[in-house]
Design a protein around this nucleic acid. Structure first.
Lengths: 344, 344
DNA sequence: TTGAAAGCGGTACCAT
DNA sequence: ATGGTACCGCTTTCAA
C-alpha cells in the first residue's frame, strides 16, 4: 500500500464537486469562486493532499528532474559540485539523477540514453575525457532538451557554459613558481582533448612566455584517464624525474593527480619543495595538513554546480526559446603554502 | 518537443494491431503468437521504442527509484557510499534521489516528506545527529515503504541494517595506541545519541578495560554537529589540551573531525605523535601524505552503500512480505602510520 | 490468440 | 463559475 494518499477524486467526492472544479481550485484558478476555493484548499490541507507527481508528469510531459552527467562521484571536487546542484534543486523543487561516465565514452552514451529514457527535463553535462564525437549530444540538443555544460565544456553545441577560469589558475600558479625562483616548471594534466586541459595549458604557456622562459614540451604530461588509473600518474612522474634536465616544480591539474603525485613523491622520498615544488588544483578542505602544506589552486566547485543548475532551470522554465547563451567563467583562488617555498 | 519517442499506439497503428496486443508482445506474453511477437519486437527495436516510464509508473505505482537520506553530500565517506549505491542502482536499473539532512532533524523530516511525495519505491536512511524522535520514519514504515538503515541505524524500526563494525574499529585503534605506549587516550566523536557513537565508545571502553586502564570521562568529547561547525572541534580539542592530565593520544571519529583535528594541531604547532598521537576514522585516499602520515581506520563505505542498496531492492521486489531482517556488520581496516609511532 | 475498454491521477477543452 | 469528458501512455480485465 504505497499510495494511501488522497486524490482529487476523493476531494471532489467528499465536497460534492467535480474533479475539474477541485483541480482548478487547487491551482487557484480565477474562474473559481472564492468560497469554493477556500473550501477545497482547506480540505486539501486538512487531509494533507499532495498531487501525484507521476500523474502530473504524464500529463504535462515534465518531470521536474535534472539529469547529471559527470565523470566521477566519489571525488572531492565533484562532491562539491553536486552539493551546489543540490542546493538549487532543493529550493526549486527539482530532483536530480546522477550518472558517472568514469571517463568512458561508452558509458557516457549509455548514461545519456538512460537519462533521456527517464525523461529528465534538462541536462547538466561535463564531458568524459574520452569523448571526441559529440553526435549523441547534438541529437539530444536538437530535440530541444535544455543543456548546460559545466567544467568540461564544448563549443560545438550552442548553449550555456559554466566553467572555472582554468587559464588564470595555471597562469597564477606558473607565475608564482617563477617568482619564487623555479624555472623548469612541469605540468601534469588531464588528456589534451578536453577543454579544461587546453585552458590550463594556455595559462601555463602565457606565464612562461611573459617571463621569456622557453617551453619544454617534455615538461607537459597528460594522464589519459584523468588519474583514474593509478599507474598513469606514476609513469609520467617517473618520466619527468628521469629527464636530463628534470623539472624543479610541477603543477598538478586535479584532485586525483595532485594526491597521486604527493603520494608518489613521498614514497620515493623526494623532498618537496627542495627537489620538486608542487602546486595542486585541489579542493581538499585542509591542504595545510599535507606534508608539506600544499600550495593549491582552488576551484569554485560549489558555485559552479549552483550556477549551472540555475541556468539550466531557467532554460527549462523559459516560455520562449532562448537564443542567447552565456559563458560564465568563475575565478579560482590560489593559496600559497610551503610546497612552493622560495627556491634557495 | 521532448518526447518524440514512439509509443505503443504508434506501433499498433503501423502494424495494424491493437494496443493490447502490442503491449503483450513487448512483454513477451505467452498468449501472443510467435509470429506477432517477432513482428512487434523487431519493429520496436528498429524504431528504438522505449516504454514511457512515467506512464508505467502511474499504472504500476512503482517508480524504480530509491530515496536516500544522508547527513551530507560533499564528504569523502558519503561520496564513497553514494558510489556504492550508484553501482547497484545502475545495474538494476533504478535511479536514486539524494537528500542531505545536514545533521538537522527538521531538514530530515522535510526531505523524507519530499521523497515520499516523489513516490520513491524505498528508502536508504542514515539518521541525522539531531534525530531523537522517530515517528516520521515509523509512519512511513507502517505504510510498508521498504527501508534499509545504514551507518547510523536504529533498532526502533524493524528492518535491514548495514553498518560498519564501529566497536571493533575503536577497539583496534585503542589497543594499538596502548600497545604503543599511550595511556591517556581521548576520543573525539559524534553526538552521543547516534548508533555509531555508542558503538565506537563501546570498543574504546572495552580495550581500556582489557588493559586495566581507568576510564577518564574528561577524555571523551562529543561534537554535537558532527564536526559540521568549525568551532566545535576546536573547542573540545582545547578542552582536552588544557586538562591537567592532558591526553597523549586521540581517536577522531570521522573524516571531518579528523581533518579538523589535524589542521588545528598544525596551527597550534603541537607535534604529532610526540605531544599527541592521532588516529582518524577517515576514508581519505592517501593519508600517508598528511603530516605526519596518519594512522587511520578505514570504513567500508562503498561496500556499505552497495550492500544496503542490494538489500533494499530485494525488499522492494519481494513478492511476499519480508519478516526476517538482517544486521550486516562490515569490517573496518586499520592502517598504521607515523602519527601513532611508539611512544619513547 | 486478439481486441475493446477501463483506469492509474491529473489537466484542460468544451459545454452550460 | 462549474461540470462532463477526453487524454497523457501503458497495463490488464473481460469478451470474443
Amino acid at each position: 500500500m504505497k499510495s494511501d494518499n488522497i486524490t482529487i477524486k476523493d476531494i471532489a467526492q467528499a465536497l460534492g464537486l467535480s474533479n475539474s472544479t477541485v483541480s482548478r481550485a487547487l491551482q487557484d484558478s480565477y474562474k473559481i469562486s472564492e468560497a469554493i476555493k477556500k473550501k477545497v484548499q482547506d480540505y486539501a490541507r486538512e487531509k494533507n493532499y499532495r498531487p501525484n507527481l507521476v500523474a502530473q508528469s504524464l500529463r504535462s510531459n515534465k518531470t521536474r528532474s535534472i539529469g547529471i552527467l559527470i565523470p566521477s562521484i566519489p571525488n572531492i571536487f565533484w562532491g562539491e559540485v553536486i552539493n551546489g546542484i543540490e542546493s538549487v534543486a532543493h529550493d526549486k523543487n527539482y530532483h536530480f539523477l546522477i550518472t558517472q561516465s568514469l571517463e568512458s565514452y561508452e558509458r557516457e552514451l549509455e548514461n545519456l540514453e538512460h537519462l533521456m529514457w527517464r525523461s529528465v527535463d534538462g541536462l547538466l553535462i561535463s564531458l568524459s575525457t574520452e569523448t571526441e564525437n559529440l553526435e549523441h549530444l547534438k541529437k539530444v540538443h536538437e530535440k530541444n532538451i535544455p543543456i548546460v555544460f559545466f567544467d568540461r565544456v564544448t563549443d560545438a553545441i550552442e548553449t550555456h557554459q559554466v566553467k572555472t577560469d582554468n587559464a588564470d589558475g595555471t597562469y597564477k600558479a606558473t607565475k608564482h613558481l617563477i617568482n619564487n625562483g623555479y624555472k623548469r616548471i612541469a605540468h601534469i594534466t588531464s588528456p589534451p582533448n578536453i577543454s579544461i586541459t587546453k585552458e590550463r595549458l594556455e595559462g601555463y604557456y602565457r606565464a612562461l612566455k611573459e617571463f621569456n622562459i622557453e617551453v619544454n614540451p617534455d615538461y607537459v604530461k597528460y594522464c589519459y584517464h584523468g588519474g583514474m588509473e593509478v599507474n598513469e600518474v606514476e609513469t609520467v612522474l617517473d618520466e619527468l624525474l628521469s629527464l636530463k634536465k628534470a623539472p624543479d616544480a610541477v603543477i598538478a591539474a586535479s584532485d586525483r593527480i595532485t594526491i597521486a603525485v604527493l603520494a608518489l613523491l613521498q614514497r620515493r622520498k623526494i623532498s618537496i619543495p627542495k627537489k620538486l615544488a608542487v602546486i595542486g588544483f585541489t579542493n581538499f578542505t585542509a591542504p595545510e595538513i599535507f606534508n608539506p602544506p600544499l600550495t593549491t589552486v582552488r576551484q569554485p566547485a560549489f558555485e559552479m554546480g549552483k550556477l549551472a543548475t540555475e541556468l539550466l532551470i531557467q532554460l527549462i522554465e523559459s516560455k520562449r526559446p532562448v537564443t542567447s547563451f552565456e559563458k560564465r567563467i568563475l575565478p579560482t583562488e590560489m593559496f600559497i603554502r610551503e610546497s612552493t617555498s622560495r627556491k634557495k
